[in-house]
Design a protein around this nucleic acid. Structure first.
Lengths: 179, 179
DNA sequence: AGAAACATGTAAAATGTTACATGATTGT
DNA sequence: ACAATCATGTAACATTTTACATGTTTCT
């Protein structure tokens, strides 16, 4: 099965929340969905064109893209499909796995970056959470669910990275192999 | 910058641990690295051919691929490069974000799957951990670091999903929009 | 002898990113 | 008028997956 349905899912889903221009859609995917989803710029307009062709999205008076009734049906279908997992690609863990070659100090630096990054994530998520909690959208509880996932992940990363730094500091630095 | 360096990093790194055939390399990437990295089958042999051409890997008496000295230098270079983050693509969160359309019960099922999955991950990781702890490899401490990351993530996911299920059960199910 | 696993590769198709191109609208 | 932002798209390129193709070795 192609991965295009996943792009369609993101696009139709975003339009189910509110009608938007392609430009706004891109901004929504970058900012709101950005913590757990991404679509590259060059995917969105072709997807919209295809979906419009198929009658799944239309335009309102202000030329914003809207979800049609068939589009809503299609969205439900896509939501019910089994989750396609994207391949794991964690560059940090890949580097730490070969940490003996990279060297202890550099590993510690990477882990410090990870702690900092997790902190930044938590700050961003707190801001988004405040915004979402202020709204009274019917989607609110579900939005908060995804925010909570991000927060849980960030906290786990911060704790893991911190304790990893501590344990690396206790172990002796080994010389690089063959140096 | 192309993403090929990332594939090279995985291949050279794996060979830095021990010499292997391409077949074994693939198995190593699937099983050991599999929790945080993936390379598709069709990438590995072309990468090996390219790296051999460039003199970064060679063959030992048993025709296993080995890391050459220039290869080790290149590996260090690649390890020191900034981490390229791969785009976030979390199908579970994408579906939950549109949970109002998907429906509360289906969301709960997805979350239950997530809890189960996290449990399976923890079991697999525990097995790998036991194996690695038994070894006395110089890479051991770094391997354990990456295992700990997986464990932390899995535990965070299990907790988040469990408490999300509880909170969804408390909120009333809203009818599907426009049904 | 046959099955299963080992081993190496290629080609086509699908996917995805990046850079470029163009014009309208809005605020200063 | 000018800059910034809004808005829509295309084309070239890079990456990745999947399916196919082929032969060897090892175990039963």
């Amino acid at each position: 099965m192609s991965r295009r349905p996943q792009t369609d899912l993101a696009v139709l889903g975003a339009l189910s929340v509110e009608p938007m221009t392609g430009y706004a859609l891109r901004a929504a995917i970058t900012s709101t969905l950005g913590h757990f989803w991404s679509e590259s710029f060059g995917q969105i307009y072709p997807a919209l064109a295809r979906l419009e062709e198929a009658g799944l999205v239309g335009r309102d008076e202000e030329r914003r893209f809207t979800l049609t009734d068939p589009g809503r049906v299609r969205l439900r279908e896509l939501l019910a499909e089994p989750i396609e997992r994207s391949p794991a690609r964690n560059g940090l863990l890949l580097r730490l796995f070969f940490g003996r070659t990279l060297g202890r100090e550099q590993c510690i630096e990477l882990l410090q970056d990870a702690v900092r990054e997790a902190g930044e994530s938590l700050a961003t998520l707190a801001a988004i959470r405040a915004e979402v909690e202020a709204e009274n959208s019917p989607d609110r509880d579900y939005f908060l669910l995804t925010i909570a996932a991000g927060e849980a992940g960030a906290r786990a990363q911060a704790q893991w990275a911190s304790s990893s730094i501590a344990s690396l500091r206790q172990s002796p630095d080994q010389p690089h192999p063959r140096d």
